[in-house]
Structure formats: structure tokens, C-alpha cells
Nucleic acid binder design. Structure first.
Lengths: 247, 247
DNA sequence: CGGATTGTTGAGATGCCTCAAGTAACGTGG
DNA sequence: CCACGTTACTTGAGGCATCTCAACAATCCG
């Protein structure tokens, strides 16, 4: 199943651009780093469809949608959430560039949550059946998929512990810091793409509590925060605070 | 990589017994149900090592152990937990017969948590590299592994929501009920293998709270509970209570 | 039988939530 | 470019669900 002639919402750039563009993606990063060679990567590129841009608030997938593909975030930030029987939203996670959406939809064959753009978002879409077929031929790809799935289990379990508001907020901020640092961006300064309400919902706190904790962190010289602009001033102490969460 | 001549703690029963014994296991159940034929199942059997019995309190794996194999619970109940920097235990999950341990260890190549027997436990151990290799030849096995991993993500996310003590306890009890029901056991009566402290820790509640909630459930005619013996008297109302958790 | 473990029950403490009000930024139309 | 409404965020006060501490009861096991 080598080539896929699927519709693209965006014309595909040249291969050279592809490799540069997607250097931060979970697939190319892990693949290249783990012995998946250029030839294999080229086969992956045959599968990818670049879709977007999506506008803030736009749905990328809706809860209940049939699962046909996983997608790597190329640019922007997305949130996943589900809506309970009473109509309350539960934010399940945020995905930054390079992270992969849809692993929790394999079992069940439907998306168990909705996926929404928080800002302008571009995605790399991979047909999952095609990718699975490719994975039977390229064992390093199979291995990568297993690892990414396994990583997702650990991520999901992270916030399940009974942690204090301080621990949660510190871990949340450090999560961004580490993500950006590992991709060559600043570990100290970044912009949060989501409103406080979403952060609070994700951390299972009230929005007011998040606001208060951040205020106190600022008073204590740990961070400088203005609306969605965040600067981490004392990462060491933040890591100490977040230790119970991040282990 | 057909046959593995690994050491076995227990002599392996005949193949006929195998198929009967393991009828409730995630692998044979899902495999047979999903078109994985007897021949493929026989190949799986070449990989399996039956290990055990383990005694209550015995470690099956320790946090930090190198990851080489996944294991299906054959009999008994196990808990997984990690110990934080302050020495407090965090119970991550319980595994009943037919469930598979170790999926969260793939990423990282080490067990991120310890695994302990709660009662007398027997396991079916599968070398993960061997199973992955087999999965490249038997695509239905690969697909099964993807599904099981994906299911584990959803399980991990379940308890992460901000739920009340009542919702958590109801969902916890129904989890056992459903597991047993789907395997041909009573959905109404069962024995909890773990102490209240472990239940409470898993649900992120105080042991006293679990005790009180169960007492109230009993007063309200939802359950009859004596120590570790549980009878569910009104599953419908329990499901109503647990709805926010189980969706 | 006696000590240890496990589970239950009560009383008081507390971390976070809810409610309410106020402030700052943003986009829109005049 | 400014007035305006809207949304996002902050701050304070009081309430509640759950935790902690403590005592006790039941069960297990040597």
C-alpha cells in the first residue's frame, strides 16, 4: 500500500520543505532518531495529507466521529475534550506542534472526544489503516507507534493522581517549558494558547484557583505572568514543586 | 521467531488445556473474536510462558525493572503502583484475570510502576520483542495490540476527571461487575481482593471516605457489603450514579 | 488467647469551590 | 480613533466536600 492519492486541503510543499517543516514532528523526530532511515520516512510522506488551516474554535474532529486517521499537529495548539451527560465540558488534553492526536480513538473505532483548534492550526493527517499496513513492513515504525501509544498512557495517568493546586499548576507550566525546550524554543518564555477556564478544567481546578495560584507564584518570584504571556523565572523551584506530579 | 525455550516456573499444560484455560484472556478472546484463527493463536502459544504462582504481597515487577515482556493475568488480582519522592504509594490500577500488564512500560523501556500480587496470581508472560515480531506477520495481532494500548489510554483517563466520592466508588464497583459479567461470572456478587486503603488510594480518596460512602450505599439499599464481600443490589441506580465517570 | 491488621465511625480542620463584584483587554461599529 | 459591549481574568468572602486525627470494633493468624 505504497502511495495514497487522497485529497489535500493544501497543496503539498516540496519534499525538501517537508523534511524541514516537519522536523519537530513525533514521527520524523523519533523515526530519524531511532534508525528509521530516509527511505522509510519517504514512505511515510506518501501517506501524509496536510490539512488546514483551521481557525480558533473550529472542530478538527467531533466526539463520535468514526476513526480513520491519526493526525500530528504541525502548527498551533489544539485541545481535546468531551461533554458529559449534564453538558459540562471536560478538557482531556492539549496538543502542541509535533504531538499526535487520535491514539485514544483506535479502541472503539470512534473518537471518544472532540478536538478543537485553539489558534490557527495545521495538521498532518495519516490514514491509520495505511499506517498500520506500513508498520507491518517497517518494524521501526511499528515500534514507534507502540512507543507513542505507551507514552500516551503515561500522560493520561499523570493528572490522575491526587495533587494539590500548586503541584498541578507547576507541572502544567513545566510541561510547556519542556516541550518547547526539546524542540529548540525557549524554555523560559512562551504564550499559552488557551483561556484560564480551559487550563482550570484540564487541571480539575476552578478558574479562580488557577488565577490565585499563578498570582502567588508571581509574588514568590517563580514566574512572571501577564494574561497568556508566561515567563518562568525559577525553573528549579517549579520543578521541586511539580516533583510529585512529574516524578 | 517461532519457539521460545525460556524457563518456566510451572510446567505448561497440554495445548487443549491451554485453549480452555485462557478463554478469558485478552489475547485469545479478542483474537478469536476478530478473525485471528487457531493457527495464529497456536503461534502465540509458542511465545507464552506460564509463570507463578505468586503469593499475596509478592512483587511481579518492580518500578525501574527493564521492560522485556507484557503479561496477562491468568488467575488472581494484581495492583500496580508507584512510590513518590516522599515515600507515599500511588495505586495506579488493578488488573483482573484476562487483563494485560506492562503496556505503560514500552515507552521508556522500563516499568514506570511496581506490580504486586494481591492474592495468589498466575501470569502468562509474552516476550514483547517476540510478540512485536509476530505482529508484523499477523496483522490482526498488531491490530489487537494497538487496540489494547488504546484502551489502556482511555482507562487511564477515566479516573482523571474531577468526580465526587460517590461517583468514584459507584464506578469502581461497576467496573468489577462488568468485568466479571463479560467473562461469565456473577455481575452481582464478588470479592474484592484489595484492602480499603488500596481502593481509596486508587480512587484518590481517604480510606475513611470509601468506608463511609459504602456504608451509605448500603443504607440506601444500593449494595450489601461486608468487609471484602460485595453484593450489588441496585445496579441501575449505581450506573446512574457512575454515569459521569463511565460516560 | 493475644497481638497485628483491617475496617468503621465520629469530630474537627482545610483546601478548593462557588458566588459575586470588579478590572483589564479586545473587537466592533460609529 | 474612540465609545461601547463582550469576553477574559482577577480578587475577595463564605461554604462544602473531603481529609486528618483519634478511638474503637472486628477479623485474622500465629
Amino acid at each position: 500500500m505504497p502511495h495514497r492519492t487522497a485529497l489535500r486541503s493544501t497543496p503539498s510543499p516540496s519534499e525538501g520543505n517537508e523534511l524541514r517543516f516537519c522536523g519537530t514532528c513525533a514521527f520524523s523526530r523519533a523515526c530519524l532518531g531511532e534508525g528509521l532511515d530516509k527511505a522509510a520516512l519517504r514512505e511515510l510522506q506518501c501517506l501524509v495529507e496536510h490539512i488546514g488551516p483551521f481557525q480558533p474554535g473550529e472542530y478538527l474532529f467531533r466526539e463520535g466521529d468514526p476513526f480513520t486517521a491519526i493526525a500530528a499537529v504541525r502548527t498551533g495548539t489544539v485541545k481535546t475534550f468531551s461533554v458529559d451527560s449534564v453538558g459540562r465540558e471536560q478538557v482531556l488534553g492539549f496538543f502542541l506542534p509535533g504531538e499526535v492526536i487520535g491514539f485514544n480513538a483506535i479502541h472503539g473505532a470512534r473518537f471518544p472526544c472532540s478536538v478543537m483548534a485553539l489558534d490557527t492550526v495545521m495538521l498532518c493527517r495519516f490514514s491509520f489503516p495505511s499506517m498500520a499496513a506500513l508498520a507491518t513492513r517497517i518494524s521501526s515504525l511499528q515500534s514507534l507507534l507502540f512507543r507513542l501509544l505507551s507514552q500516551e498512557i503515561k500522560k493520561a495517568a499523570l493528572l490522575a493522581g491526587d495533587f494539590t493546586a500548586d503541584e498541578r499548576v507547576a507541572a502544567f507550566l513545566l510541561g510547556f517549558s519542556r516541550h518547547y525546550a526539546s524542540r529548540g524554543y525557549s524554555a523560559h518564555r512562551f504564550t499559552l494558547a488557551m483561556p484560564r477556564a480551559d487550563i482550570a478544567n484540564y487541571l480539575r481546578l476552578a478558574a479562580e484557583t488557577v488565577s490565585r495560584v499563578m498570582r502567588r507564584f508571581q509574588d514568590e518570584g517563580l514566574i512572571a505572568v501577564n494574561r497568556r504571556e508566561v515567563e518562568l523565572l525559577d525553573i528549579e523551584r517549579l520543578e521541586y514543586l511539580a516533583q510529585p506530579v512529574l516524578r
